[in-house]
Amino acid sequence: MTTTYAALLRGINVGGTKKLPMAELRTLMEGLGHDAVRTYLQSGQAVFTSGHGDGESLAAELAQAVEKRFGFTVDVIVRDHTYLKAIADNCPFPAAELEARQLHVTYFSVPVAEDRFAELDQAAYLPEEFRLGDRALYLYAPDGLGRSKLAVELSRPRRNKGLIATSRNWNTVLKLVELTGS
Score class of each variant (00 low, 15 high):
residue 126 L to A: 15
residue 112 V to Y: 01
residue 152 V to W: 13
residue 109 S to K: 06
residue 85 K to V: 08
residue 66 V to T: 07
residue 88 A to G: 07
residue 128 E to R: 07
residue 134 D to H: 12
residue 60 A to F: 06
residue 135 R to G: 02
residue 160 N to S: 14
residue 80 D to P: 06
residue 159 R to I: 04
residue 95 A to Y: 09
residue 51 G to F: 06
residue 149 K to T: 13
residue 129 E to V: 10
residue 129 E to D: 15
residue 98 L to Y: 12
residue 118 A to F: 12
residue 68 K to R: 14
residue 125 Y to I: 10
residue 44 G to R: 03
residue 161 K to F: 10
residue 79 R to P: 00
residue 143 D to A: 13
residue 77 I to H: 00
residue 141 A to S: 15
residue 165 A to V: 05
residue 136 A to R: 00
residue 138 Y to R: 02
residue 158 R to I: 14
residue 128 E to S: 10
residue 167 S to L: 12
residue 153 E to G: 06
residue 140 Y to V: 04
residue 92 P to Q: 13
residue 103 L to H: 05
residue 112 V to G: 00
residue 102 Q to K: 09
residue 122 Q to L: 14
residue 136 A to P: 01
residue 78 V to W: 02
residue 82 T to F: 10
residue 52 H to Y: 09
residue 114 E to H: 06
residue 68 K to P: 06
residue 40 Y to T: 05
residue 46 A to G: 07
residue 56 E to M: 08
residue 92 P to Y: 11
residue 153 E to T: 13
residue 165 A to I: 02
residue 160 N to M: 13
residue 137 L to G: 01
residue 37 V to D: 02
residue 43 S to A: 11
residue 108 F to H: 06
residue 54 D to V: 01
residue 119 E to R: 15
residue 93 F to P: 02
residue 166 T to H: 03
residue 136 A to Y: 00
residue 103 L to P: 01
residue 40 Y to C: 05
residue 144 G to L: 14
residue 134 D to P: 07
residue 136 A to V: 01
residue 164 I to G: 02
residue 147 R to A: 14
residue 139 L to F: 06
residue 79 R to L: 03
residue 87 I to R: 00
residue 106 T to A: 04
residue 139 L to S: 03
residue 68 K to M: 11
residue 166 T to S: 11
residue 99 E to R: 09
residue 91 C to P: 03
residue 87 I to T: 04
residue 37 V to G: 03
residue 89 D to S: 11
residue 91 C to S: 13
residue 68 K to D: 13
residue 114 E to M: 10
residue 99 E to K: 09
residue 46 A to R: 05
residue 44 G to E: 02
residue 98 L to S: 08
residue 134 D to M: 09
residue 156 R to F: 10
residue 43 S to Q: 10
residue 39 T to M: 08
residue 155 S to F: 08
residue 56 E to S: 08
residue 164 I to M: 07
residue 74 V to K: 04
residue 98 L to R: 15
residue 102 Q to G: 07
residue 119 E to W: 12
residue 130 F to Q: 05
residue 59 A to G: 07
residue 105 V to Q: 04
residue 92 P to H: 10
residue 144 G to Q: 11
residue 108 F to G: 01
residue 84 L to P: 00
residue 136 A to T: 01
residue 89 D to P: 05
residue 69 R to H: 11
residue 47 V to F: 05
residue 55 G to S: 07
residue 169 N to R: 12
residue 107 Y to P: 00
residue 112 V to E: 00
residue 124 A to W: 09
residue 86 A to C: 08
residue 123 A to R: 14
residue 123 A to I: 12
residue 121 D to Y: 10
residue 134 D to E: 15
residue 54 D to W: 01
residue 105 V to A: 03
residue 66 V to D: 00
residue 126 L to M: 12
residue 150 L to K: 04
residue 140 Y to P: 03
residue 131 R to F: 11
residue 103 L to W: 05
residue 129 E to R: 15
residue 72 F to V: 11
residue 122 Q to H: 09
residue 95 A to H: 10
residue 118 A to T: 09
residue 78 V to D: 01
residue 118 A to E: 15
residue 168 R to F: 06
residue 105 V to K: 02
residue 155 S to E: 15
residue 159 R to W: 07
residue 131 R to V: 06
residue 43 S to H: 12
residue 99 E to M: 08
residue 101 R to M: 14
residue 117 F to A: 05
residue 155 S to Y: 08
residue 129 E to S: 13
residue 133 G to C: 03
residue 81 H to W: 09
residue 126 L to T: 10
residue 83 Y to A: 00
residue 163 L to W: 00
residue 96 A to T: 14
residue 149 K to R: 15
residue 162 G to P: 04
residue 86 A to F: 02
